[in-house]
Amino acid sequence: MTMSDATRPAINAQTSAPLSGPTDADRDELRRHGILLTSIQELANWGRSNSVWPLQFGLACCAIEMIAASMARFDIARFGSEVFRPSPRQADLLIVSGTVTKKMAPQVIRLWNQMPEPKYCIAMGACAISGGPFKQGYNVLKGIDRFIPVDVYIPGCPPRPEALLNGLIELQKNIRGRHIAGPAPVEADSPTAPGEYPVPAFGERDLEPTSNPKLWQPPVIVRPDKP
């Protein structure tokens, strides 16, 4: 497969913000000498990463595995994340658990807009990442990352609850590497409503627009012709 990397824009730029502080190795070294090195940023990141409250928001099959992850066998509470808040105002994490249909997409984006910063998004399962098995459907959104930024993708159909926990651990690592000022402002499309993502309207045949072009620029695929 040849893919012109030059045309691929930086998607999810905010996830790769490097931590401009001491590295983990430095910190371990200091800790060994009895010095607990910390800073406001680290403290905040520690607090945020250990208290990720997900939005109680299930879409489809994966939602059941999400619920299962919060149940006794897997117990997401061990990570401090069992507080599934039903209101987006109190949630930190949007787990897009299942197929996002075109009819549902505006609602998901609205929920995301209603969540306070800092907020994170996990695309759980094939359908949330790319439309998955249902991507050939006329009413299925081909990946939630067309409209909102996704921090962690968990493939699987559905992913095991352990895989969700694994994704959560990845997210916690990601949060610990962030700057306190929040993610890089790739969003903020409209100057009148900063931080809000445009909500698509229902069109006659499709959502309008079909993606958020500021956020989503798909790379170009170039395949050699089939023999």
Partner: peptide, 14 residues
């Protein structure tokens, strides 16, 4: 309804 209309029947026919 329809928030999870995943076109199962259409996919099934294809």
């Amino acid at each position: 309804f329809g928030y999870l209309h995943r076109n199962h029947e259409k996919i099934g026919e294809n």
